[in-house]
Amino acid sequence: MNNWDDLRFLVALSKTGTMTAAAKSLGTNTATVSRRIERLSESLGMPAFVKTSEGWRPSEAVASLIQLAQSFDGELQATLNSQAVDSDAEPVTISIGSLPVISALVLFPGLKQHGSRLSGVKLNFSDRVFKEGLGEHDIVLQYARPAQGRIIARKVGSMSYQLYRFVDTPAGEDWAGLGEGHDDAEVMRIGHSTFGRAPRLRVDSIMALYRLMQTTRLPGPLPDLLAESDPELVPLDPTQPGNMQECWLFFHESRRNDPGIRRAVDWVTHCFEQLNTVNMPGTTKI
């Protein structure tokens, strides 16, 4: 590969998984991305990417090259942010991919309460549910420890869920739950076991599920923090402890010295720690 600019196209497509998203991130058009990737494949003598049901995935021919390019890109961004974060320049932008419920109940409230920790940093939030890896994000928050790779990961909290019902509506045979893609989650398994059937109604997010439960008065799984803010909700079985899920944060190892990343990570960690002081020590009840 004689054109180093091709690395930008490799990294963009590997992060986004689609030609359209890669083009948007590069400020170009889909045809240009397709043409550059095709030219690179021709120079390699084999496809640079393989089309899958989840999007374009790098082939073995470029996997090591992409890792090298991502490390260089991360170190370059860290250097640029080191110069900008404490200057009069525009705030550095950090992209956070998170489960919507974490954003709604932990991160967004933390902007008002602990925003002073983000001096020189501007945050972009986006929902991330089933995807793996960092993708287009600088920082990712997810349940369970991430797969090993060239990342730095830390546990930031434990999240408590259980089945809830409305005080004015005895639980019947039906319940509301999350989409089928969430059926492996322990709290959904508990719902299947408790009611002996699949949910009557399903939605794709916890916040939508809460609104659905309010409308239908059906019981369903909710984070403790959300349910405890609604006096109409009570645990379906008060004798059962909540189901705890670990929440992990991770970012690429090349960004370890990036002051923008450090401030964002410190802010996220502080958001969870402040919830810990309100709830049980060492536990974030969400």
Rank of each mutant, 00 (worst) to 15 (best):
M19C: 02
M159F: 08
G181R: 15
N2Y: 05
G115S: 04
N243I: 12
G135E: 06
D168L: 09
R255L: 15
E132T: 14
P235M: 08
L80G: 00
S14W: 08
N276W: 07
G45Y: 06
L201H: 10
V50T: 10
F9D: 06
A264D: 04
Q245G: 14
S95L: 13
A69I: 04
Q67T: 09
L225P: 01
E42C: 08
R262Y: 02
G177Y: 07
S119R: 09
S59T: 14
F166N: 05
L222N: 01
Q70A: 08
G97I: 07
H270L: 11
K51M: 12
C271Q: 00
F272E: 03
A144N: 14
R128S: 15
Q142G: 15
V92K: 06
E90F: 12
A227E: 11
M188D: 06
Q245H: 14
R202N: 01
E75P: 00
I152N: 03
A144T: 13
L111C: 03
G97Q: 07
V101Y: 11
G135T: 07
P146K: 10
T30E: 13
S34L: 06
M280I: 10
Q162L: 13
A22I: 06
D266G: 13
E228C: 02
D184G: 13
K131L: 05
L178V: 07
F272S: 01
N29A: 03
Q142L: 14
R256Q: 13
L26P: 03
I66S: 03
A23D: 00
A89K: 10
S158I: 11
A22C: 01
S43A: 13
R262L: 14
L225Y: 09
R197E: 08
P170W: 07
A78I: 07
Q83H: 14
P47I: 10
E90R: 15
D5K: 09
L209S: 00
P238W: 06
A171V: 09
N3P: 02
